[in-house]
Amino acid sequence: MLEIKNLHVKLAEEDKVILRGLNLTIGAGEVHAIMGPNGSGKSTLSYVLSGRDGYEVTEGSAKLLGQELLDMEPEARAAAGLFLAFQYPVEIPGVGNMTFLRTALNSQRKARGEEEVSAGDFLKLVREKAKALKIDAEMLKRPVNVGFSGGEKKRNEILQMAMLEPKMCILDETDSGLDVDAMKLVSDGVNALRDAGRSFLVITHYQRLLDHIKPDVVHIMAAGRIVKTGGPELALEVEHNGYADLLAEVQ
């Protein structure tokens, strides 16, 4: 599904190197988690993959189903099946949540040469998906993320994911700012989307989220590369012992 090879990234406007030769392969239907201390480059990885400005790839490649992501515009990456659930979802005053969802869905379908979804079918679909995430009609009518609580914003991200049905989902600290109940709701939403043709990369600081979204593989990231890979037990080890021992052991 996703194959990242020797990825080197620096900030475009300063000489700060963030990713230093990152390698990561995620197979179809797999759930991978990336954990790591602050500043290890986790969020940068998600931004670079989704095509945010401000980063310069100096070396390496990132392929989604064999297609080079790094050569594509952000919208083309989305149409190819990549989705990033933002750590800080963006507020867009003046753009209704429904308009936003429908424009996004139909833009992607158009880019893939598929037929656009009619207004009626869209409404049916969005209501059904919103209900499962306990998103009410009022939230759908409001401008995108404006005045949403932290939990509502994260649920709205998962709603977008459910509507767009991407192949490769990256969840960037989706658990941050969530209470226990909201985390369960969001996790259930994610788990409902798990299937053999869809892969997940879950970026998190805490093992807690991984109790709900059970990963197949856990990676530890430090200083811009993956330093250790293991099964779910690796997350537990981090939770109990912190990163210091792990990193010392690697070095």
Binding site: E73, E75, A79, F100, L164
Partner: peptide, 29 residues
């Protein structure tokens, strides 16, 4: 707003359509 533009594009909305959407949003009030 460049951040809003990136957010829209990351959801598959092409650059020009995203710009139009944000311009209309600006005029909405």
């Amino acid at each position: 707003d460049e951040t809003a533009l990136y957010y829209l594009r990351s959801r598959g909305v092409p650059l020009k359509a995203a710009q139009s959407l944000l311009v209309l949003a600006f005029l909405a009030e």
